[in-house]
Simulated scan of single mutants.
Amino acid sequence: MSSEDDTALTVGRAAALVGVSVKTLHHWDAVGLVRPGGRTRAGYRVYSGEDVARVHRVLVYRELGFPLAEIGRLLDDPAVDARAHLRRQRAQLVERADRLADMVRAVDRMLTATGGGMRLTPEEQVEIFGDDWDPAWTAQAEERWGDGEQWAQYAERAATMSPQDWKDTAATTAELNADFATAMRDGVAPGSPAANALAERHRALMSGYFDTTHAMQVCLGRMFADEPGYAAYYEGLAPGLVVWLREVIFANARANGVDPETATWG
């Protein structure tokens, strides 16, 4: 290469152009992967446009996980169909870009969700869920389950809900609670088809917040009955309701192969 070639690049300029270190280009030169094809009058090796194009091809192969020895073979073997390899490279890069885009969207959703899930003020919570609702329950739930997968699901879903969405959820909850109370007064027995259907409605309601298994529902039933705040909430709807609901949940769990005595959240 003539030293008068204005397109020739020193190793430093070539490295800056393609975004690698000078050390990397020196290494690729030493192993014969990309050897600059020209020299200046002072004897410095320089990269032509063709050399730089080869560097770019190496970078693509390296990004796809090929070892340097394999990259050299692909670039230098005349029997290798370079265009076919480039087409496969492009398809793999598009697939990787799609996966990364999905990951970015997932992170964006989690960033939106960060901060406790429910975006209603305590006053709005009481207005929507009624005077028996305790806004502290959300903070208590986060403290108990905040590190778990279910809380992450809840936070992500709750962060996208508008006040009207919460009102609709509250109406669905109130309707289900009223049906619980009516069923209990009518003598519907835990384990009966009618009671099991109510238990499944409750599990579906909870699954709107996070994916709720029968074992998780059993844990919730225990919590409703054992913790004073939750027990008082259900007892305020109808005396005896919290124990009846717990037994309904337990019986339905047994019908679905879960032993309430050993059921855990995990």
Rank of each mutant, 00 (worst) to 15 (best):
M1W: 14
S3N: 13
S3Q: 08
E4G: 15
D5H: 06
A8R: 06
A8T: 11
A8G: 09
A8N: 04
L9T: 05
L9W: 04
T10H: 09
G19H: 13
G19K: 10
G19C: 13
V20C: 06
S21H: 08
T24W: 05
T24S: 08
T24R: 08
H26A: 11
H27R: 04
H27A: 03
D29V: 06
D29M: 04
A30T: 04
L33E: 00
P36W: 00
G37L: 01
G37H: 04
R45E: 02
V46A: 03
V52P: 01
H56D: 09
V58S: 03
L59Y: 11
Y61R: 13
R62V: 09
E63Q: 14
L64W: 08
P67C: 07
I71F: 09
G72S: 14
G72T: 11
L75C: 11
D77Y: 13
P78Q: 11
A82I: 15
A82N: 10
R83L: 15
A84F: 14
A84E: 13
H85S: 10
L86T: 15
A91W: 10
Q92T: 08
L93D: 10
V94A: 12
A97N: 12
M103T: 14
M103P: 14
V107T: 14
L111V: 11
T112W: 15
T112H: 12
G115C: 07
G116N: 06
G117A: 04
M118L: 13
R119E: 02
T121S: 12
T121G: 08
P122S: 06
E123G: 10
E124P: 04
Q125N: 05
I128S: 03
F129A: 03
G130Q: 07
G130F: 07
D131H: 08
D132H: 10
D132P: 07
A139I: 06
Q140P: 07
Q140H: 12
A141H: 09
E143C: 12
W145K: 05
D147W: 15
G148H: 14
Q150W: 08
W151D: 01
E156L: 14
A158R: 08
A158S: 10
A158K: 04
T160S: 13
T160N: 11
T160F: 15
T160Q: 13
D165E: 09
K167D: 14
K167V: 12
K167H: 14
A174N: 15
L176R: 12
A178V: 13
F180V: 13
T182V: 14
M184A: 07
G187L: 09
V188L: 05
A189S: 13
P190W: 07
G191Y: 02
G191P: 06
A194P: 00
A195Q: 02
A195C: 06
N196T: 11
N196I: 13
A197C: 09
A197T: 05
A197D: 02
E200C: 05
R201D: 02
H202T: 03
H202A: 02
M206V: 07
S207E: 00
G208W: 01
T212N: 06
T213Q: 00
R222Q: 01
R222Y: 01
M223Q: 05
A225K: 02
A225G: 02
G229I: 00
G229A: 00
Y230F: 04
A232C: 00
Y234K: 00
L237T: 03
L237S: 01
L237C: 00
V242E: 04
V243H: 05
W244L: 02
I249C: 05
N252Y: 09
A253R: 02
R254N: 09
N256D: 10
D259W: 09
T262E: 03
